[in-house]
């Protein structure tokens, strides 16, 4: 029982990202409204961000900002005391990429709306077949 509990505690953040990712994927597969699909896409990307950030976590460590940075040059810095900065850096990039994709996707949605006057995928498809 104790082992199971440890197992859950040590892994639940990864499960969290899986669940979030699957919610996003479900929205992208099932939803008919294009804006809902875009939201699903965003949730999907956010899940990956959560995953990366949880890689960076370290027990008993603090923010990756070195305390009294400039004061004492001989102040030894121990890697164990600080969280891993690299995933945060990568995710800053990934967030920006996600925002850029979102912008382009929304621009396209507006274009589609102008063209068909609807954002429901089945209605658009019906109209395309109708022609």
């Amino acid at each position: 029982m104790d082992g199971l509990f440890d197992f859950i505690v040590s892994k639940y953040n990864y499960w969290g990202y899986v669940v979030l990712m699957m919610i996003g994927m479900y929205a992208m597969i099932v939803k008919k409204n294009l804006v809902k699909k875009i939201i699903g896409m965003n949730i999907f990307q956010t899940a990956i961000i959560l995953f990366y950030v949880s890689i960076g976590a370290k027990r008993d460590a603090t923010l990756p900002i070195i305390a009294h940075g400039h004061g004492d040059a001989h102040h030894a810095v121990h890697a164990v005391d600080y969280m891993n900065p690299l995933p945060h850096v990568l995710m800053l990039t990934a967030i920006v990429v996600a925002v850029a994709t979102l912008g382009v996707a929304l621009a396209l949605t507006i274009k589609i709306y102008k063209q068909y006057n609807t954002l429901e995928e089945d209605e658009i498809n019906a109209r395309l077949r109708g022609r």
Partner: peptide, 25 residues
Amino acid sequence: RAPLATLNYIFMGTIGASFYLLGVG
């Protein structure tokens, strides 16, 4: 139909890129 096709491309492309990112992760 280009905008609609492109939006589908975005969805697929983003999932693809995200999977790749996940793999790198």
